[in-house]
Design a protein around this nucleic acid. Sequence first.
DNA 1: GCTCGGAATGTGAACGTACACACGAGCAAT
DNA 2: ATTGCTCGTGTGTACGTTCACATTCCGAGC
Lengths: 336, 336
Amino acid sequence: MEPEKVRAPNIRDVAKLAGVSYQTVSRVLNEHPSIRDSTKQRVLDVIREIGYRPNQAARALVTSRSRTIGVLTSQNAHYGPTTSVTAIEHAAREAGYRITVTSVASSEYPSIKAALDHLLTQSIEALVVIAPQVRVLEAIRELQIDVPYVTLQNADVGGADHSMSVDQVAGARLATQHLIDLGHTEIMHISGPQDWIEAEARMQGYLDAINAADLRTRAPILGDWSAHFGYYAGLELLRLRDFTAVFASNDQMALGFMHACWDSGLDVPGDVSVVGFDDIPEAAHFFPPLTTIRQNFGEIGRRAVSLLLAELQGADVDHGQIKPELVVRRSTAAPR
Amino acid sequence: MEPEKVRAPNIRDVAKLAGVSYQTVSRVLNEHPSIRDSTKQRVLDVIREIGYRPNQAARALVTSRSRTIGVLTSQNAHYGPTTSVTAIEHAAREAGYRITVTSVASSEYPSIKAALDHLLTQSIEALVVIAPQVRVLEAIRELQIDVPYVTLQNADVGGADHSMSVDQVAGARLATQHLIDLGHTEIMHISGPQDWIEAEARMQGYLDAINAADLRTRAPILGDWSAHFGYYAGLELLRLRDFTAVFASNDQMALGFMHACWDSGLDVPGDVSVVGFDDIPEAAHFFPPLTTIRQNFGEIGRRAVSLLLAELQGADVDHGQIKPELVVRRSTAAPR
DNA sequence: GCTCGGAATGTGAACGTACACACGAGCAAT
DNA sequence: ATTGCTCGTGTGTACGTTCACATTCCGAGC
């Protein structure tokens, strides 16, 4: 015979057992200064003994503070976003917040709006947007989000700055310039999907560097971030082989492209130089180890949270950008 | 002059504007059957007009149902867990649930307990444990989790089955048997960290297959899942080179190991055969494309959720295992 | 016309907490 | 002794919703 649906202990149960009023218990929980040490101890003992846990719903209801940060992310398990989410969670928890993650099912507008709506009904106090599609920003503008938010892409939403990001344009410029410095003049770019903010920024950086060096501009290939795409695009591109270097918009596509090179009997970096973007942990062990652009995803996440928390306390804080870093490995060399 | 801290509209505001009682509004929200269509429409119009959103905290308080599923995951951004989380989120949302994710900072007991505690104070209705450390299960047992939960590792917690997983032992057996079938007799195993359930299971599968074939058992190398480890372990192992095949406990370590092979002037699979585990999307583009064990992380996540939801409705459901699958690519061949 | 009964709607709790305020005790200054 | 202040604690109420129950409406059947 098990006990019939025992109600979870509440603040009054604790109070009764400790021989104080419920308000005193509340004060203990909220670390009110003026409470006698002996009383506090007694209450804490009872709490531990009966396994009392404060009811967050009740708390949220009365304070109208959910202590929750919403995170909007994309469906796919990309290394960068994932790393950022983990960092966000960690930073948030340190500050006594929790996070609730929702991913957008597709880059279609209704799906984005639904996801955003889902977050907003949870009365989140702040929002981190990692889902890097252009349309997400439109949705944000339209839904008139009234909580502080930060996007992890540097994109103009119009008006105030709401981004906290690694400077993608600078990173792409760095990558391209590296190839130019090596002496390459025919440089291809394999880009990410057109509706991704990062893809566009990296493409922009590529074009900037190409133009600055007065080289021939070539139409970027629009990919989908996957190694598969890099591979098949590579097979196609290598039939012409009217270039000596490739800047891929992420490491996975670079990997796929290099795969296409071996399959075509080409040597990297002997015949073709390849640069990636992100510096995923595996990139150092690709064949050959990949020259790429490192960005600190964890740092971005942490900074985003501290920025939001500051904003929640009314402070005015600098949004800003983190500089990316070129990591030269073995996939790039001077052209033959 | 902005409006002073406008209170969000509540159910009574809607009621007043629609000319009905608040209870009627509540009924509309909860899709109560007996409500006149015209009334319902009127209420819905008002809701849309003033942008009313039900307050989840109040709802949770009175129903004592949070409609939240907790997810406990590990710190690192591994492909498998991440994919599962995304799938869980999706499945949960479909069912009107949200998820709240917490990651364990380390595999130390206090950190695990803290994370679990953090989830429990959020009055989650169910729990999915992805954090695959052995200690997590101890913590679960000890904290007497009183909500339905599922671990995404097949581990005996004792008592009822709470797992929903890909059969890791079978997968490892498959991988090892593949090497044995090719004619290898000296097979090394690079394992994951000792305190990870999956690492142990895969090691067990390896040992099973080795023993069944009556081959020499070799002490597995204990790694940390990273490509870096695979690389340095590889450099070390290859100095002796008293083996012809390696089964790595995940694809990343396999990659690192292969890197060590090139650096040592060895050919894969000519000199050494390599098998990985997981089939991450990049594995098909490693050099050479990696033979590995595929497991469907998304499916696992989805099934875990439907299992929990069924349990929440009092149904008794089969936990169970999914069979992994051997994917033969180019990194394995008969020994010379 | 009256009763009956289901459909449609309304009223009074209750959920568990935090905030505003009130109150008594103790102590210092007057 | 009185006042005034601080410290520690208790009392009432509100947060926004749902549940149980109460009430009204309206048409069918006698």
